[in-house]
Design a protein around this nucleic acid. Structure first.
Lengths: 211, 211
DNA sequence: GGTGGTTCCCTCGGATTGGGGTATTCATTT
DNA sequence: AAATGAATACCCCAATCCGAGGGAACCACC
């Protein structure tokens, strides 16, 4: 394959050994080539316009001012065409979701061998989202709504409308019921969720995936 | 491998040919065996307690009263230990998310050959979430927040609090600003999003992934 | 016949909301 | 030096929304 059309890979990783190891692996491929490697996000961000990466391998646990999450956000902001793959030692649930929100499209561990690393690059190149089984399941499970909701169908329906910020009046209009009925339902929701205002109800509903 | 510890696979698929083909493939594996195959969710649900499936292969486009989405919901409700894999011809975005919300843990196409089908079963057995590259990316992209938000940092922060149902007063207390300042920010948010109440703001924010 | 879900009604006062202005400070940009 | 954008703060005002307290009817499913 001609080097002109090789995908440009940028590596941000503070551990020099890992960084070099990743560089060697990536450069060994006919499809990818490393355009640069940095030990901090700040440096990487400075040279985005000249590095022009297609793919960024971003360490999450970075020393100094900017961690990988924030780094991914800035990079996606300044150079949106790049696909970001997070590289981490932990598969911590909270961190995964923060990284995804920040714009990451893949998630691999530092223990990845050359096969896994190249597979991830290939996967993201063809429009996929490389990640481990565990993380895939984590992400998918995050969509599941709680099947053990204490709320009735109608109450859930109304809770959804509350989540959209609808007022009593709007809810009653939308569901073709009286305003008083909406209020009754909401009172029952409050009792079941043990909350005392819309705010708390929505917060609790999101927490327990009731909607 | 002893048949006693084979994973019990249930197939719900109205097309007899596909159903039989899937049955043969699954039974050819040493790890899995088909406990039953039905052409409708209703039938499958009736026999859940005797079929005791570990994995359910569920067709989405099912004729009659109950489609696969609703079917998955009921099955996860009545037999929660089962992992549900949706089987479909389309990779329609809306349908994917509905299926995931309903409790599905995997998503494969009907065009899957025996390798792909068995790979999906193995993947879900080891706690993963089998899906195509395209769907993985769809799901991951769904987490990304819009980097082109018209809102400032502070406004986004306040919008998040509104989404939690907080009132002006609560917001001002939490951010250590005056109540009037919260109002000013919210007025600006309304102007930028072209909405005129909290409800619409939240709905629009969710739609455009502003938070 | 009971239970649970959904519907409807009443009263009440205090808090919240949204719309209209204006203004200061600070940092960045031009 | 001027301008812009962001964040902060204050004023007035009317509408309504909210949460809490009751009671009650209808229907479907056990």
């Amino acid at each position: 394959m001609n080097s002109e059309i090789k995908k440009r890979v940028l590596i941000v990783e503070d551990d020099k050994e890992i960084r070099n190891s990743f560089m060697v692996i990536v450069n060994s491929s006919s499809q990818f080539s490393v355009v640069n490697g940095y030990s901090s996000c700040e440096e990487a961000i400075k040279h985005l316009n000249t590095d022009k990466p297609d793919i960024v391998l971003m360490d999450i646990e970075l020393p100094g001012g900017m961690n990988g999450i924030k780094g991914a956000k800035v990079i996606k902001d300044k150079w949106p065409v790049a696909d970001v793959i997070m590289v981490t030692v932990y598969e911590d649930s909270e961190m995964v979701f923060e990284a995804l929100k920040a714009g990451a499209s893949g998630y691999i561990t530092k223990s990845a061998n050359y096969r896994e690393l190249l597979a991830a690059l290939e996967e993201i190149s063809k429009g996929g989202a490389p990640m481990s089984s565990k993380i895939a399941r984590l992400v998918i499970d995050n969509f599941h709504v709680n099947p053990n909701s204490p709320l009735t169908k109608r109450e859930t329906e109304i809770l959804q409308l509350i989540a959209e910020g609808k007022t009593y009046t709007q809810i009653s209009e939308q569901l073709f019921i009286s305003k008083e009925t909406s209020k009754t339902h909401i009172k029952n929701i409050y009792a079941k969720l043990q909350v005392k205002c819309k705010s708390e109800a929505i917060a609790k509903a999101n927490l327990e995936k009731l909607i």
